[in-house]
Design a protein around this nucleic acid. Structure first.
Length: 266
DNA sequence: TTGTGTTTTATTGCCTCC
DNA sequence: GGAGGCAATAAAACACAA
């Protein structure tokens, strides 16, 4: 596999014979011509010499394989569409696509490889954003809880003082007979998170119970399956590797989400 | 025009699977 | 062992500010 790739643009390999390009059913000159025709303006020349065909002067400009050339928008569009339906390439589809596009199968394979890499990079960026907003949300809720806790604590202290004052002043209520407070409710640990926090939250932006938000160990933390989801024309439609990771504080989410099945790998 | 940063195409080497 | 995948990287093509 690598050998064919290596030969593809290897000047020494090209010098001898074009048979080297014929192994996959397409040859580079056919592809080169197709690209050339779509990019009428560019007529640059390859840095390496070509096979016998190049002796034909008429052919020279159009047939010469170039060292590197961008695919035409039409080619990219078709490749993108194909990638959307299936991001991996079976040999048959590769050959078909290559023929359709006037490219070498190898070029199609390389394009898919690079496209998958790009998709993955974008996906990681999206995942980072999701994780960050979840963190921000949790942090914000935590902050609210801490403040509320402080407020309640001071209320308890104040009520305790009143009770004690009443106990001293009241004729029948001795300090000994007074109902003890249920535990030391001025103690942070007694209050803190021993009850369901969600009961105390009014905003409802996040449901945080005693188990708290958590990151579940999903085991394999990367690709959910052999197939990535179809991507909407390379746009950010927010498929996350980690979408099944968060059980709380999921940020506002995309409407056009795909079903989770493909994410539920184990 | 040129320098610079980004994107795209292609290669290389390693790994896994059959 | 060959085929195909991925990560890392090179290098050409492109975009764009100065």
């Amino acid at each position: 596999m690598m050998e064919s790739g290596r030969l593809f643009f290897d000047p020494t390999a090209c010098r001898g014979s074009n048979m080297l390009f014929l192994g996959n059913g397409d040859n580079i000159f056919r592809g080169g011509r197709a690209i050339m025709s779509m990019e009428e303006s560019s007529k640059r020349r390859s840095f390496f010499s070509s096979p016998d065909d190049l002796f034909d002067e008429e052919y020279y400009d159009e047939q010469l394989p170039e060292k590197k050339r961008r695919l035409s928008p039409e080619q990219v569009h078709l490749l993108e569409k194909s990638f959307e339906t299936e991001n991996k390439l079976e040999p048959e589809r590769k050959t078909q696509l290559a023929k359709k596009l006037g490219l070498q199968p190898r070029q199609v394979a390389v394009w898919f490889q690079n496209r998958r890499a790009r998709w993955k990079t974008k996906q990681l960026e999206r995942d980072y954003d999701v994780l960050k907003s979840s963190y921000d949300s949790l942090y914000s809720n935590y902050d609210t809880l801490v403040k509320e806790h402080e407020k309640l604590k001071s209320e308890v202290v104040s009520l305790n003082e009143k009770l004690q004052a009443k106990g001293v002043a009241g004729a029948d209520i001795s300090a000994q007979k007074a109902e003890p407070l249920p535990g030391d409710i001025t103690n942070v640990s007694a209050l803190q998170f021993s009850v369901k926090v969600e009961d105390r939250l009014s905003c409802g932006s996040a449901v945080v119970d005693e188990d708290g938000p958590q990151i579940l160990d999903t085991g394999d933390s990367y690709f959910p399956s052999d197939n990535y989801p179809a991507e909407d024309d390379g746009s950010d439609d927010g498929h996350s590797y980690f979408r099944n990771v968060f059980v709380a504080a999921e940020p506002q989410h995309q409407e056009d989400e795909e079903p989770l099945e493909w994410l539920e790998w184990s």
